[in-house]
Amino acid sequence: METVIFTVFDILNLLLVLFLWIYTVRIYKKLPEKIPTHFDLEGKPDNFGKKKFAFFMPVLSALFYVLFFFITKHPETGNFPFEITEVNQEMQFLIMIFLLKWLLFLVLLMFLNIQDYTIRYSLNSNSKARVHILLFIPFIFISVMAAIISAYIYR
């Protein structure tokens, strides 16, 4: 069952990476020469760069995808909150792999949201972010806490 869930996450995460690339390539020619490269907590740009920086998020997302993919293929190299034994090894690896695939999904959604806002703001300075960036932080924090609690239960 877990292999089906992991495969679904891998496909979903790959689709998010591909969508981010396609979205960026399709809109690139319409972008002005200067685009926002950083936003403050209120969503106002406080740094600008050349339009080639539009590819920063797609490149970063592809790197994260590859990195997380290889890390989850070799869970024995991970850092675990509890000692790994013969008894708990399978469950601890399962928890870690699920957490990493879920965190990658959240991070890719966050990158997509940032990219969308950057592009829309570049084309219209009255645009607002669809989802506030700070909304992702509680989801990431709760996910990590749930994984640690699960690892503790199955130690």
Rank of each mutant, 00 (worst) to 15 (best):
Y65M: 04
A54S: 14
G49N: 06
Q92A: 13
E86R: 12
P75V: 01
L63N: 11
K51H: 02
I71M: 11
Q89H: 07
Q89C: 02
W102T: 15
E86D: 14
V59K: 08
K101I: 04
D46H: 11
T72A: 02
K50R: 15
L104E: 12
G78I: 06
T85M: 01
F64R: 03
F80K: 08
V59W: 02
L104V: 03
L99G: 01
F80R: 03
L60Q: 09
Q89K: 15
I84N: 02
I97P: 02
L41C: 06
F70M: 13
E83P: 08
F93R: 02
F80I: 07
E86C: 05
M57N: 08
L60K: 08
L103R: 10
K44F: 13
P75R: 01
V59P: 00
L63Q: 07
L60P: 02
L60H: 04
F56T: 15
N47C: 04
P81N: 07
P58V: 08
N79I: 14
E83S: 13
L41H: 10
V59G: 00
F55W: 14
F68H: 06
A54C: 09
L41R: 12
L100W: 07
P58S: 06
F56P: 01
K52H: 15
H74W: 13
Q92T: 05
M57T: 11
F56Q: 06
G78L: 15
E83W: 13
F69Y: 12
F39V: 01
F98T: 09
E76V: 10
F39K: 05
P45H: 11
K101F: 10
P45Y: 11
G43E: 13
P45K: 04
K73V: 00
P81T: 04
F55P: 03
G78K: 07
